[in-house]
């Protein structure tokens, strides 16, 4: 009974944490100033949020059905594979298109420097 209660608390905590992460990610999309900063929201925070929810769902159904469910595991796996790829591609095209960056954005990749710099590479 105690163990079950403890697990239920863990599932609930994961759910809440997932929700908070997702909201923070969404807020980031709205609040951040430029493309490069905005990218952090959906890639990091939201992925974490979805991951938490998936973990919660996995544990819940494990608890309920008595055996672990593989599908959720697979979803998590695919999520963790696809997110970096799409983030990487988005950044690459953002840099290629030389999207303007806000002054607060730290670090200036060489792509955003001068035309001549590209020629050097």
């Amino acid at each position: 009974m105690d163990l079950r209660f403890a697990l239920e608390v863990a599932v609930s905590a994961l759910m809440i944490a997932g929700g908070i992460f997702a909201v923070i990610g969404a807020m980031g999309m709205v609040r951040f100033r430029d493309f490069y900063m905005r990218l952090h929201g959906p890639t990091k925070s939201t992925t974490l949020g979805v991951g938490c929810v998936l973990l919660a769902s996995m544990s819940f159904f494990w608890l309920k059905n008595g055996h672990p469910s593989l599908q959720d595991m697979l979803i998590t796996l695919f999520l963790f594979i696809t997110t970096p790829v799409s983030a990487h591609l988005l950044t690459m095209s953002g840099l290629h298109h030389k999207l303007p960056s806000a002054p607060e954005t730290k670090g200036q990749p060489y792509e955003l420097d001068d035309e001549d710099d590209i020629a050097r590479n």
């Binding site: 594979i81 696809t82 970096p84 790829v85 990487h88 591609l89 690459m92 095209s93 290629h96």
Partner: peptide, 13 residues
Amino acid sequence: WSPDRYPVILSSV
């Protein structure tokens, strides 16, 4: 066109 035609992360994934 971008010089990086085949992004390395995408292709390995």
